[in-house]
Amino acid sequence: MSRKATVTKPQTLQPPLTPSAELQLLNVFVGKWPTQGLSYGSGQSKENPYDSPVRWIGAETYEWLPGGFFLVRHFNGQIGDLPMSGIETIGYDAVSQTYSSQIFDNYGRIHLGQRTIRDGVWSSSIGTEYRTTYTFRNDGNNLATHWEWLDGDDWSVLTDSEGTKVN
């Protein structure tokens, strides 16, 4: 007796015609953001987390991939003598109702994270090591970013920066 093989056709993906309202909340990031600030990760002590500041200058550009379902951030900068660059992709998963991100940097690291928004303030967790707060001011044209890193059992400030949207 012979058996007939059953072939199943792959499902055709049918994305929504327009990005969700949750994705549209990310529009506040879209644009070019020259940034500057201070980094405290080198020479830092728990007694004074603002010891040994190092100047940070850079630029970030956020733009939508075609279709508007993923936001891409390109970043380039200098922390003291240390170059820093990379990309981040940010999307929204309607099933889990979470914003997720992947960061790839010039040191070969890949960081997985999540973003949340509450009362107009965005926060992100990047793995279990870093967390960030993004606060927009001046009708969304100024962005203050505060980074922290897990130092043993305590969170310590890593960087504070300011950016002004140029387009």
Rank of each mutant, 00 (worst) to 15 (best):
T12L: 13
D160K: 06
K4R: 07
Q24C: 08
Y134N: 02
A59S: 06
V72H: 01
Q97A: 15
G77E: 04
T35C: 15
D153I: 08
G86T: 04
R131K: 15
L23H: 00
T128G: 15
M1D: 06
G86N: 02
T8I: 14
T128E: 09
S52V: 04
G120N: 09
Y134M: 07
T8C: 01
V54F: 03
W155R: 03
D105H: 04
D154E: 10
E129H: 10
S39L: 01
F69V: 03
L150N: 06
D105W: 08
G108E: 00
T159G: 00
E60G: 08
R73Q: 14
L13P: 02
W56Y: 13
G68C: 06
G77D: 03
Y50H: 08
Q44Y: 04
T159Q: 03
W155L: 05
V7L: 13
R3P: 00
S96N: 06
N76P: 01
I57R: 05
S42I: 10
G41Q: 08
L38M: 13
T98G: 07
T132M: 01
E63H: 14
Y134S: 02
T145E: 07
W122Q: 00
R118L: 12
D153Y: 07
Y99K: 02
N27F: 01
I79F: 14
F69W: 09
Y130H: 11
N138H: 11
K32D: 13
Q36Y: 08
E162T: 06
T12E: 15
S161M: 13
M84I: 09
G91A: 03
T6A: 15
G31M: 04
S20M: 05
